[in-house]
Write a protein that binds this DNA or RNA. Structure first.
Length: 557
RNA sequence: AGGCCCAUGGUGUAAUGGUAGCACUUCGGAUUUUGGUUCCGUCAGUCUAGGUUCGAAUCCUAGUGGGCCUGCCA
């Protein structure tokens, strides 16, 4: 038996089932409804299910839970498959649809009717609700509960034949209207829906409810462990009731775990949809969205997401994971593989007054610790841009970047000393004058003098203009729901969540391909947008580098 | 209010009746041609009260706190 990397309570239960001989193999599944896009919470479930199947050398199924034609569309099926493939969750030949089982499910409904365990009910939706009772009071039995098997069979057949309109009748299980678990109070099994289904078309006008479809679909596929989130805990007795009362070929077991929550974001489909519909973001794949497509566009890698899903753990306690863990996983993954480049995001011109007119070329390793990644050429000219924040006219003690009279190293190139500050009418520095030490070419000097600061730079004449998008969390509050009485999570939307700047990059950036991570030295990891025009590259910042100076400076004020 | 579930540092997660560990975060230090990386260190935890036991984070009871459930959604 495989030794799982992260042992959690689900593995223990599976071990126990295997040890008791209840199963000889392990089969899991990911069962999305094709009515929306996948988010990082789904990724956790995918990694869990796929990881378990892999750990036990079992099978992993992708099954679309498409029992509600009024909400589901083929385009969602495609995007979900794309997201799974990208995440690396391979379902092999095991692609299924609950709608493939409609005929079998229907036969099982007939079976229940024959056994006297299901009946056709004419009550309206409102009446069923009124009969259901409340959390503290028992429900009342439907007046149609006592119909004969023959009448139920006839009525159900006519429901299927399309003789009734939407909502006129439903098929319900006959269980217990006084059950403390409301799911057991004669739950609806089938409803009438004259809607075109994305796969079965007009083949059906009655559709099974989730409860009647899910467990039986698991049983049909031989799923051994049906892993779902906590809110289905109350459905487990019903799940088991169907398995107990139907001649199903296998006996799956439902196990619940706590869904993933992340700070500074929302995770429910409803709210994500609201963000898109109300234009708070550009779309489902907006790089600020916690969707799989948004994270992908932001520059997250499947490896980083899988590592994250591994690290968050699996338990039954409600949890909220810190966004910093997600960012940590990305940095960790990109650190070793992203080629280094230089780009200036907030340019300040520097004229190196004693620099020759001709361009000089310096070699910069693509990675400081991986010589195998090679190097690229970086042109240095008399006029360059540096980051505005890398100069201070009146620096605090521990600032070791450029200041009047101070010397810094231009990364990979040489030392410069600031000699003059050119200011505009408001006294703001608009240009610096500097001199360079010809002895320092290559980044060090024969006298071995120490230069504390190394800053990045880009030639003012040999560069690539870039559009760069800088991101902050979509919500400024850790918990977007943390609002005063009567407020909305939208009140916590971060107005600074996206900032677009015009930047300059070194020429080697021209060779970057969409989706390929790069590190802009000292500024973070970036990714070239897949849809931008070739002559106007757009880079998204995936994540910043850790910045202990920023922290120190902030603590200083 | 009825049923079900949950409770370990700031966050997340281990310890399965026998020394409370790991990771993220925080804060420090070393190294560094990225204030990055790497390395080392630091702060900090078993919800409360009873009980069982030689011994309880772990088992039992009660309390407290939190989550879910009254769709012909999934």
């Amino acid at each position: 038996m495989a030794e799982p990397r992260a042992k959690n309570f689900i593995y223990e239960q599976i071990d126990a089932d295997l040890a008791a001989g209840r199963h000889s193999t392990v089969v899991t599944r990911f069962p999305p409804e094709p009515n929306g896009y996948l988010h990082i919470g789904h990724a956790k479930s995918i990694c869990l299910n796929h990881g378990i199947a892999a750990a036990y050398n079992g099978r992993f199924h992708l099954r679309f839970d498409d029992t509600n034609p009024s909400k589901e569309e083929t385009r969602y099926v495609e995007s979900i498959k794309e997201d799974l493939r990208w995440l690396g969750a391979d379902w092999g030949d095991n692609l299924f649809f609950a709608s493939d089982y409609f005929e079998q499910l229907h036969d099982w409904a007939v079976h229940l009717i024959r056994e006297g365990r299901a009946f056709v009910c004419d009550l309206s939706g409102d009446e069923i609700r009124a009969h259901r009772g409340t959390l503290t009071t028992p429900g009342r039995e439907s007046p149609f509960r006592g119909r004969s098997v023959e009448e139920n069979l006839d009525l159900f057949a006519r429901m299927r034949a399309g003789e009734f309109g939407d909502g006129e009748k439903v098929l319900r299980a006959r269980i217990d209207m006084a059950h403390p678990n409301l799911n057991m109070r004669d739950p609806v099994l089938y409803r009438i829906l004259h809607a075109k289904h994305h796969r079965t078309g007009d083949g059906w006008c009655i559709y099974p409810m989730y409860d009647f479809a899910h467990g039986q679909s698991d049983a049909i596929e031989g799923i051994t462990h049906s892993i779902c989130t906590l809110e289905f805990e109350d459905h487990r007795p019903l799940y088991n009731w169907f398995i107990d009362n139907l001649p199903v070929p296998h006996r799956p077991r439902q196990i619940e775990f706590a869904r993933l929550n992340l700070t500074h974001t929302v995770m429910s489909k409803r709210r994500l949809l609201q963000l898109v519909n109300e234009g708070h973001v550009d779309g489902w794949d907006d790089p600020r969205m916690p969707t799989v497509s948004g994270l992908r566009r932001r520059g997250y890698t499947p490896e980083a997401i899988r590592e994250f899903c591994d690290r968050v753990g699996v338990a039954k306690r409600n949890n909220t994971i810190s966004l910093s863990l997600l960012e940590f996983c990305l940095r960790q993954d990109l650190e070793g593989r992203a080629p280094r480049r230089m780009a200036v995001l907030d340019p300040l011109k520097v004229v190196i007054t004693n620099f020759p007119e001709a361009t000089e070329t310096y070699a910069g390793p693509n990675h400081p610790a991986e010589p195998a990644m090679g190097e690229r050429e970086v042109p240095l000219t008399r006029e360059i841009y540096i980051e505005r924040e890398d100069f201070m006219e009146d620096p605090p003690k521990k600032y070791f970047r450029l200041a009047p009279g101070r010397e810094v190293r231009l990364r990979y190139a040489c030392y410069i000393t600031c000699t003059d500050v050119v200011k505009d009418a408001e006294g703001r520095a608009v240009e610096l004058r500097a001199t360079f030490d010809p002895e320092s070419r290559g980044g060090s000097t024969p006298d071995n003098r120490k230069v504390k600061g190394t800053i990045h730079w880009v030639s003012a004449t040999e560069n690539v203009p870039l559009e760069v998008r800088l991101y902050e969390p979509l919500f400024s509050a850790e918990n977007p729901d943390d609002v005063p009485e009567g407020g909305s999570f939208l009140d916590n939307l971060n107005p600074e969540s996206r900032r677009t700047v015009a930047a300059y990059g070194e020429p080697a950036l021209r060779g970057t391909r969409p989706g390929e991570p790069v590190q802009f030295e000292r500024k973070g990891y970036f990714v070239l947008d897949a849809d931008c025009a070739e002559d106007r590259p757009v880079f998204h910042r995936s994540v910043t580098l850790r910045d202990s100076w920023a922290k120190q400076a902030k603590a200083g004020d």
